[in-house]
C-alpha cells in the first residue's frame, strides 16, 4: 500500500507542469499584445501610403483582430489551467495526508495499524481516483483549447504572408511595409514556437 510517495510526486509533477503551461501562456499573451501594437502602427502606415496600400491596411486590421482573438483565447486557457491548479493542489494535500498516514502505519501495531489500513483503503478507492479523473478531464479540455489556438495562429500566419505580398504593391512605401510584414511573420513564428511548447507540456501524460 506504499502509494503516498508516488502520489505526492505525481501531483507535484502535475503542479510543475501547470506552472510551465502558465508561463508559456503569459509569453503568448505578451506577444499578442505586441502584434496588436504593430498592427495599429501598420494601419497608420497604410493610411499614409494611401491608395496603393489599401490591401495592406485591410490585412493589418485583420491582424489586429487576430491579436485580440488570440489574447482572449489565451485568457480562457489561463482560466482552464487555474481550474487544474485547484484540483491538483487538493491532490497534493491528499497525497501528503496519505504519506503521513503511511508513516503512522509503519510505526503502529495492532489496532492502530488496522484503523489506518481501513482508512487508507477507503481513501485510495475513492477520493484520489476521483481527483485523477477530474485532472484528466481538465487536461482533455486544455488539449482541445490548444488545438483551436493553433488553428487561429495558422490563420495569423496566412495574414502575415498575405501582408508581405500586399507590401510589394505599396509604391514608395513598399520597403517600410515589407519590413512591417516581416516583423509580423517573425512574431507569429514566435507564437507558434510557444504553442509547440504548450502542446509539449500539455501532452506530457499526467503521472507519467
Amino acid at each position: 500500500m506504499a502509494m503516498g510517495y508516488e502520489q505526492t510526486e505525481d501531483s507535484g509533477r502535475e503542479l510543475r507542469r501547470i506552472v510551465r503551461i502558465n508561463e508559456e501562456i503569459k509569453t503568448v499573451v505578451k506577444t499578442a499584445y505586441r502584434i496588436n501594437l504593430m498592427a495599429m502602427n501598420a494601419i497608420f502606415l497604410a493610411k499614409r501610403a494611401g491608395q496603393s496600400a489599401l490591401g495592406f491596411g485591410v490585412l493589418s486590421n485583420e491582424l489586429r483582430r487576430f491579436a485580440t482573438d488570440l489574447e482572449q483565447q489565451m485568457l480562457a486557457l489561463g482560466q482552464a489551467t487555474g481550474g487544474s491548479v485547484s484540483t491538483v493542489t487538493a491532490m497534493v494535500k491528499e497525497a501528503r495526508a496519505i504519506k503521513v498516514l503511511e508513516r503512522a502505519r509503519a510505526q503502529c501495531e495492532g489496532v492502530g495499524k488496522e484503523i489506518i489500513d481501513d482508512l487508507l483503503r477507503r481513501r485510495s478507492a475513492t477520493t484520489f481516483s476521483d481527483r485523477r479523473d477530474q485532472v484528466a478531464a481538465l487536461n482533455r479540455n486544455l488539449a482541445m483549447m490548444i488545438e483551436s489556438t493553433a488553428s487561429l495562429v495558422e490563420m495569423g500566419g496566412v495574414l502575415a504572408r498575405s501582408a508581405k505580398i500586399e507590401a510589394a504593391y505599396g509604391g514608395s512605401f513598399s520597403q517600410s511595409l515589407k519590413q512591417v510584414s516581416s516583423d509580423f511573420e517573425g512574431t507569429i513564428s514566435e507564437i507558434r514556437k510557444s504553442l509547440d511548447c504548450l502542446s509539449k507540456f500539455q501532452m506530457r501524460e499526467f503521472a507519467a
Binding site: V100, A104, Q107, G110, I115
Partner: peptide, 19 residues
C-alpha cells in the same frame, strides 16, 4: 504538529482508540 502525528498516533493507539 502534522510532522509528529505518526509518532503521537502510534503511541496513543496502543492505549486508546483514536476514533
Amino acid at each position: 504538529g502534522s510532522e509528529v502525528f505518526p509518532a503521537v498516533f502510534s503511541a496513543l493507539s496502543t492505549q486508546y482508540d483514536p476514533r
